[in-house]
Design a protein around this nucleic acid. Structure first.
Lengths: 234, 234
DNA sequence: GTCTATGAATAAAC
DNA sequence: GTTTATTCATAGAC
């Protein structure tokens, strides 16, 4: 139609394209309206120009929102699904909030804060629970200490074994060397000997043992015997 | 167009209307597509026939949802608001979930469960916290007991006061009455007298005191003296 | 559905 | 925006 037939492909000439857009847009809106009126159809038409400008038509007396809603409804339970998801989220939230405050309350209890709502019997129960927890904690403390001492003992044994593999000859040679060195330095021989009789004091042995450098070993807990009757002194 | 011009108003003849709908619908979709291609426009067209059947067109490669979303976005922050709300909900949820698991973990600690991740020093701290909690719980227990005994004493005093307001004459009359009744019943007088000297055993006094009928009063806790040095025996 | 006369839409020019 | 030549859409008949 018009002075010449045109191929249905993007019009490259910008001016031409804009003119055609304007003319055809009007035609489309008119035809849309005619179809809607003539055939009693509900129509929504959304047009974005290439510059992003919006043009729209929708059948009176509906709003575009109503047409869209009807569209989405007819497309399945999309809108419904969205709402259901929202509902579910809200529900989950409220459950979580409840849970959180319940837990906070519980923690408060175990911290011995705000016990105004508790009856005497409940306080006794709480006390019992806490005593139970302390016993468990002390139990665990002992386990850790036990592990640490076990480790030390194992490494001690390994070192002792390594030491005993030195032959008597090697020992003798070493002793003689040290003695000579000591005499030369005018030191008493006994001091030098000590380095061999107490291997734990040797720097090398100490580094192998890796005694916790950051935190010194804590003393055994006075409660241990009561809390852990099944653990024996090795 | 066609064999004759028609007025743009609802076609009453159903068959005519349906035929026209079919023809014009095709034409509209074709023109919509042409506009979209020729002018590089993004178009969404939704048509509901009078029977509610859906026909649609949307510019490739967009989906109708995308066109609708773009429409709603350009119509204000409607969609954006929805999405933001959703985002916010999700975020809040994740925060709550974190909080919940953190609290659960904390509770586990105070219950003395799963202490594998704790170092010795942390266990000592935990033990200390728990001891602190127990002290607080015992403190609260003592408060309750103290209140209860205070209450008892107050009521006892009130009863005693009421008793002392009886004049000597009334006492004497009462005593004589009881003695006579006892003699009549061949009961020793001492038994009857006991009802006056220990008012706690009188049914009326007992009901006024409202001594916890459900649970008997628990004994004072052996730890109380240590936990509560500021509380004195009344 | 197809045909076809006719009015409508519109491309190009102004 | 108007004009105009041309193509297109389609009402009515089959």
């Amino acid at each position: 139609m018009g002075r010449g037939k045109i191929e249905i492909k993007r019009i490259e000439n910008t001016t031409n394209r804009q003119v055609t857009f304007s003319k055809r847009r009007g035609g489309l809106l008119k035809k849309t309206h005619e179809l809607s009126v003539l055939c009693d159809a509900q129509i929504g038409l959304i047009i974005f120009s290439s510059n992003g400008k919006l043009f729209q038509y929708c059948t009176h007396p509906l709003s575009m929102e109503q047409i869209i809603e009807k569209y989405e409804r007819s497309k399945g339970i999309y809108v419904n699904g969205r709402d259901q998801q929202r509902e579910q989220l809200f529900h989950e939230m409220s459950v979580l909030r409840h849970e959180t405050s319940r837990l906070e309350f519980g923690i408060q209890r175990y911290l011995g804060e705000d016990m105004r709502g508790l009856k005497y019997e409940e306080l006794v129960q709480l006390e019992h629970d806490l005593e139970n927890s302390i016993a468990k904690v002390r139990n665990r403390q002992n386990e850790l200490l036990q592990q640490q001492t076990d480790n030390l003992r194992r490494k001690e044994r390994i070192l002792e074994d390594q030491n005993s593999t030195l032959t008597n000859l090697e020992h003798r040679a070493m002793w003689e060397f040290q003695k000579a060195a000591a005499v030369e330095a005018h030191k008493p021989v006994g001091v030098v000997m000590d380095q061999f009789s107490f291997f734990e004091q040797q720097p090398s042995a100490s580094s192998i043992l890796q005694l916790s450098a950051s935190a010194p070993l804590p003393p055994f807990h006075p409660y241990l015997q009561l809390a852990l009757p099944n653990i024996q002194d090795p």
